[in-house]
Design a protein around this nucleic acid. Structure first.
Lengths: 224, 224
DNA sequence: AACAGGTGTTTTATCGGTAAAAGACATCTC
DNA sequence: GAGATGTCTTTTACCGATAAAACACCTGTT
């Protein structure tokens, strides 16, 4: 992802219409669906939401999925779905949208992610460092580095002490590219989020920060 | 994802240690990092966060990444990162954690997603319906259906009117499997979210719902 | 100094996903 | 009613990511 955001769902990000010849619109409506799945295991059918007369927004797809589950299993505690499902669905839609500026620059998200890690830390990193920074496997980092060095965005330097180790840094071109893309990326994201009021954005960021802190600190323990 | 949550990041979900022989711990700490990338393009180094004396939580990794960017580009509007970055990172961690119960049942997330769609809608669906419901490509659905029918979880029935069309429904075994997994899944998710207070969970769900509604309604327009 | 064991990186095999094309069929128009 | 057009599903080719193995090298021990 942009050295700004997150996960790279399912490999490619697609973001186009599901099938070629299929003129069919995704059930929901305007947006080219495609990636990830929804909250409760898929999008919603159609159920739930008729637009209000004035063209006002109806509930989101996750709410509709929850309603479907409630109809099948009344009383089921679907609370977690309303958070986790929405986070996942938002992540899917956001990534798809965010990839647009990156692709214009000829970079995939994971690639930009790697470059961003080098840029923001300010110093050289080893492949292992980059794998941890970008939460990807070492093998994936090796591949990306090969492409990025070939493109002249990253430079390698062998460690003098330990010859197993490699140090990586951005070239001038790499640094310039990141610095050029980042503001565009952030502006785009600002636009994407513009539907939510400023104060609410702050609340949302704070709550997500709290959740993330909990998850980062605790998930290792829960994983059984 | 469980017919409960979201995107299936990078194909497999891994969730294990980055490299085999590497005893190295992910930089952050206990949790087996691996998937997606972080907000601003990777995790945080180490910077930012020392635990407070009492063992209290420090800021999340996204906050640290934002600080790194601010150091490099002072004044940059990193607001969007604090929301989008956290959503992506939360999604990555949650999916990883959520897969545990599913894997015990021998299902991948996309598979459970598909079964869940059949279960909650209550009626038969065509492959095209399922692709839209699960936000995946038709090809992916075809593959999954093949496996799931072979396992006896799903049944196919040709349409009598239109012989191109196939109708799918859960077998008894499929329905029982979904019904057995779902509560376990939800209980697990409840545990994962338990670090956040009840009222705050409600606020979070509401804000995410608002964001998601905006994204679902608007993203198609913005995608340029 | 040889060796056992551990760490950093790369390579290989494989899996799953998408895009695009192909196949099968319905429907609409003339 | 024949042909053109479009829809639904499956197949094919390819790409990217992971896991596991292979390499290369350091380091501590005897």
């Amino acid at each position: 992802m942009t050295p700004t955001e997150g996960p790279s769902p399912t490999g490619s990000d697609a973001g186009q219409a599901p099938q070629p010849g299929t003129g069919a619109e995704p059930v929901a409506r305007g947006w080219a669906a495609d990636d990830k799945a929804t909250a409760a295991g898929g999008a919603v059918e159609d159920a739930s939401g008729e637009d209000l007369p004035g063209g006002v927004r109806r509930g989101d797809t996750v709410a509709a999925v929850v309603r479907q589950w409630q109809a099948v299993h009344p009383g089921l505690d679907t609370g977690p779905m309303e958070i986790i499902g929405r986070i996942n669905r938002c992540a899917a839609l956001l990534q798809q949208a965010e990839d647009a500026p990156l692709r214009r620059a000829g970079l995939s998200r994971p690639e930009f992610d790697l470059l961003g890690a080098l840029r923001r830390t300010g110093h050289e990193l080893t492949p292992g460092d980059l794998a941890r920074e970008t939460f990807s496997s070492g093998a994936a980092v090796t591949k990306r580095l090969k492409q990025l060095t070939e493109r002249g965005l990253v430079e390698r330097r062998g460690d003098t002490r330990d010859r197993r180790v490699v140090h990586l840094r951005l070239t001038d071109a790499g640094r310039d590219l990141v610095d050029a893309i980042l503001p565009v990326q952030l502006a785009y994201e600002t636009a994407v989020l513009s539907g939510v009021d400023g104060p609410e954005q702050g609340e949302l960021a704070a709550l997500l920060g709290e959740l993330l802190s909990q998850l980062e600190g605790r998930l290792g323990v829960l994983r059984a």
